[in-house]
């Protein structure tokens, strides 16, 4: 079978279009040392808390600091922004604690409400999102090519302590389709546990500066929720020039670190075609959190 397998993949080649794209890439992409790439790191980093608060009014529970992000998982060295939320640990339900049986896992629920009920947590109350259609989220299990889809996905991390697995963080993902585009909500909590003695790091998201630049807007909702809206702009994505951007709105509510996200571009995989419309709808949603 090994011979047949090899002969099979001898016939599998990249398309002529990809070959041309790759071989002409050097003509379209200048290089300089430490050029920021287009990769967005959607993983938690342990934050070195040195850094300069970005905006006036950075007091409060959410911070956005420009800093050296250090070495990223792809081996490149990046500068960028670290968004961080100050939260206290939250107590999970007994059945959630019992379900934690390893270092990392992803739990699948049909809806955010089902996840909240199981976890014993209230994550978000938003009348605007309640009027939008909930759409499935997709993620993958760690170190695996398996993708999983569900109405609400919960990434759980844990540590072995005293002969049992003790949850450390939970990140709850779900998504909504609005009138003009989709939004994704990530809500992260630190888990309280009677056995926990380790110092908890704040939930954070590191964003390397993209090739089109990065801007931060301080936004306060009518209900007084303080939000950092980060706009990442790209002039090239996947080797294709264009106008692309994404918006991440970071805030803390109920000791939960939120990232409300959407993206803008002309391809089908982007959720809005117009940046101003995306930002306006994002602020409408933010106004709905209570």
């Amino acid at each position: 079978m090994k011979k047949e397998y090899k002969e099979l993949f001898d016939q599998v080649h990249a398309s002529p279009a990809l070959r041309t794209e790759v071989l002409t890439m050097k003509e379209r992409h200048t290089r300089r040392r430490r050029v920021p790439g287009a990769a967005l790191i959607a993983a938690l980093l342990v934050a070195a808390l040195a850094g300069t608060a970005l905006a006036a009014g950075a007091m409060g529970l959410v911070h956005a600091d420009f800093m050296d992000l250090g070495l990223l998982t792809n081996g490149e060295h990046k500068e960028g922004l670290l968004a961080r939320g100050e939260v206290e640990p939250r107590t999970l339900s007994e059945r959630a604690l019992e379900r934690v049986t390893g270092k990392e896992d992803t739990w699948i629920f049909d809806s955010l409400e089902e996840a909240e009920d199981f976890l014993g947590l209230e994550i978000a109350d938003n009348g605007v999102l309640d009027q939008m259609e909930a759409i499935p989220s997709t993620a993958c299990r760690s170190n695996s090519a398996e993708t999983i889809t569900g109405g609400c996905l919960v990434d759980v991390t844990a540590d072995p302590l005293g002969g049992q697995w003790v949850p450390r963080t939970l990140r709850i993902f779900n998504a909504y389709m609005g009138e003009h585009g989709a939004f994704f909500q990530s809500a992260e909590v630190k888990a309280a546990h009677p056995n926990r003695w380790l110092e908890e790091d704040d939930p954070a998201l590191a964003m390397p500066t993209p090739d089109g630049g990065l801007e931060v807007e301080d936004y306060v909702t009518p209900r007084g929720l303080e939000v950092k809206i980060v706009k990442n702009s790209y002039t090239h994505l996947g080797g294709v020039p264009g106008d692309y951007c994404s918006y991440d709105a970071f805030f803390v509510l109920n000791n939960t670190f939120f990232d409300l996200y959407t993206s803008v571009g002309q391809g089908e995989q982007f959720y809005f075609k117009d940046a101003e419309l995306a930002l306006a709808e994002m602020k409408t949603i933010l106004d709905g959190y209570q």
Binding site: T138, A145, Y261
Partner: peptide, 27 residues
């Protein structure tokens, strides 16, 4: 690593598909 990155958070995929890339053809 790139496949993992794209897979894990597909809504953050930044690429634009090239045209003309169909399934492989075998003899």
């Amino acid at each position: 690593n790139e496949c993992k990155r794209i897979s894990c958070h597909p809504w953050r995929s930044r690429t634009v598909s090239l045209e003309c890339c169909g399934e492989p053809v075998f003899d």
